[in-house]
Design a protein around this nucleic acid. Structure first.
Lengths: 345, 345
DNA sequence: TTGTTACTTGTAAGCGCTTACATCGCGTCA
DNA sequence: TGACGCGATGTAAGCGCTTACAAGTAACAA
């Protein structure tokens, strides 16, 4: 008969109805077998599941989401996948989600607020049940978009109680100030700041502010701080470092906005025949794998990536389940000593 | 009736119908404004678009996919996001897709064929118009799944004309043999192979085979090759290196399955007080950023990541547009000399 | 026997969109 | 003037699923 033919037809993607027909039950029963197996007799269930397997049936996600009004999918928008800055945190986030049967959709914004907004909109359109965001800085519109659609979100990588958003992260300014305290203690008075691009990036901004504030508190002239902004890439870090080394008097330490920049600085230092930390000290931020394997090892700020990722997942699930409000969570960042920071020459 | 009330209800996500009502047109017209603006008069279009903005309307992706039977979304399943091995290629893939108005969904399989299959199924259920896969090795089922649902796919990172799948990549065995030729030329006769896990990973397998075959061709006893398998992580690389250094006679070179392992090896060598390449040479594979910034710089196999990513996107779009068959594309990998490979001591 | 309960299964109404087809005006041309 | 074509818009039929509700059945107590 033609029904069978239809089912077999190459190129035809089997639907619930195909399965129902072949198993001689209604589509509702098939749906139940898939979603609430206990509500179906074993006999029926087994027959249905066999057909499901034979036909290679997989539910159409869009249709399911449309009918059920939930997707069991969360989204994350991270600034970049190009380096490992967010990898560990995201991995932990993903693992925690997986444990709860939730799928993760990852999008990257290339550190571009406009693009990020588009990605958020995209995730919302895909019906995600929640979104993880990096940092607080973004157009108010982006937040409104989510609120209006009733999509819960959590901000990570940054702790700022003045912001009205659910969040989990650490105080970037404070962390940088803790590092600077050590830098200053070691006698450095001329510092080069190799910052990430601050526009639309509160982490970069707060870290930079932390440097300036520490110097001010220590009574060091603002003049003694030279700042260069660079994209977060090794090459840009190298170029930025070279630029800082032009400055006279030459900085005795280059404080970097993150480890990727620091790795670039280190490379450039080597290329220029500068000894680190003998001639110039270099510090990083984030403590990604990179920080450990470069030579000399980077003294950096250790960020609790995994804890942050896991925590973000938990918050998001609470939010989805209606718990509201969830207070901001502050995590501690600590200084990790390796070899790249030494006494001022 | 309740419709008007419904529209006002706070928390209500606006639909096409809401927009249509507010703009006093039919839902078909709104749909046209969004998808084929030229088919609507400017006047109507502007009125509609204003309402769209006011209501913050965003189309429901699932519903659209359901009705239109296409998603303008492609998927990629990569083994890991934890390190940068696939980052550059994926970035290029993404960029090319973006140029064509296509969204990319990225999933990671943790180098687990079972998980990969699940991710493929997931992407298929989400209605992606095509999938990028890494390497050839996977259960036949995974391929069947895609074929049965008519989802085009392209295999990357590997070139193997004997495989019946559309692909773009390089010959991992040949590339490794080219590197080994140099290793042997430099007098190395005792080699340690720090391989990635070969099960379900043809790249790792073929690279390892390349090492063995090169030695055989050079008339070096198979005994002189010691192989250790490790997960692709820095720590595992370090541990594997330590293990290889136990072997007597000690290998004069450690050939690594990729740069991440090599970075781990380098770290361990330093920890053991071994000079590279003075006491022992180390080689990498892939030429990711890491390879350049470690000390000494890694001599490695340069892989045309970006070219591969872009090419994969092009192939996938051809496939989607019905062009079939698309012959496998072979890219060239070349040796990139830095400092970590030297003459045998 | 009959009513009640507990389960299993089926029926059918949407979910929010796209699109084939119908309709409506209006300018054009013989 | 009327037939015609054409562009703009509306109508309505699904796309593949979930789920409230109805219907059917078997077990059991009264």
């Amino acid at each position: 008969m033609t029904m069978a033919d239809d089912t077999q037809r190459s190129g035809h993607v089997p639907t619930l109805a195909d399965v129902a027909r072949a198993a001689r039950v209604s589509s509702a029963t098939v749906s139940r077998c898939l979603n609430e197996p206990h509500r179906v007799t074993r006999q029926t269930r087994e027959r249905v599941m066999r057909v499901v397997r034979e036909l290679g049936y997989a539910p159409n996600f869009g249709a399911r989401a449309l009918a059920a009004r939930r997707t069991d999918t969360f989204g994350a928008v991270i600034p970049t996948m190009d380096n490992a800055i967010f990898a560990r945190g995201l991995q932990a986030f993903q693992e925690e989600m997986g444990r709860h049967g939730i799928t993760l959709l990852v999008a990257s914004s290339s550190y571009d607020p406009g693009l990020e907004q588009e990605q958020i909109r995209n995730l919302a359109a895909r019906g995600v049940d929640g979104v993880m965001l990096i940092g607080h800085d973004r157009p108010e519109d982006s937040y409104r978009l989510l609120q209006r659609r009733g999509v819960p979100y959590v901000v990570t990588w940054s702790h700022d109680p003045s912001q009205p958003h659910p969040s989990i992260g650490f105080d970037n300014r404070k962390a940088m100030m803790a590092l600077m305290e050590q830098v200053i203690r070691l006698g450095h008075r001329h510092v080069g700041l190799l910052s990430g691009v601050r526009y639309g990036n509160d982490r970069a901004r707060l870290r930079a502010e932390g440097v300036a504030e520490s110097m001010q508190r220590a009574g060091i002239a603002a003049d003694n701080l030279t700042t260069v902004e660079a994209r977060y890439s090794i090459d840009a870090g190298a170029a930025g470092f070279a630029q800082l080394m032009q400055r006279r008097p030459r900085p005795t330490v280059v404080v970097c906005g993150n480890d990727v920049l620091a790795a670039g600085a280190l490379r450039q230092a080597r290329a220029m025949g500068l000894n680190v930390p003998g001639d110039v000290s270099i510090t990083g931020f984030d403590d990604i794998d990179l920080a450990e394997i470069v030579t000399p090892g980077l003294t950096t700020v250790h960020v609790p990536h995994r804890q942050m990722g896991r925590g973000a997942a938990e918050i998001l699930m609470k939010l989805r389940d209606g718990q509201d409000p969830v207070p901001p969570v502050e995590l501690k960042a600590s200084i990790l000593w390796r070899e790249s920071l030494g006494a001022a020459p």
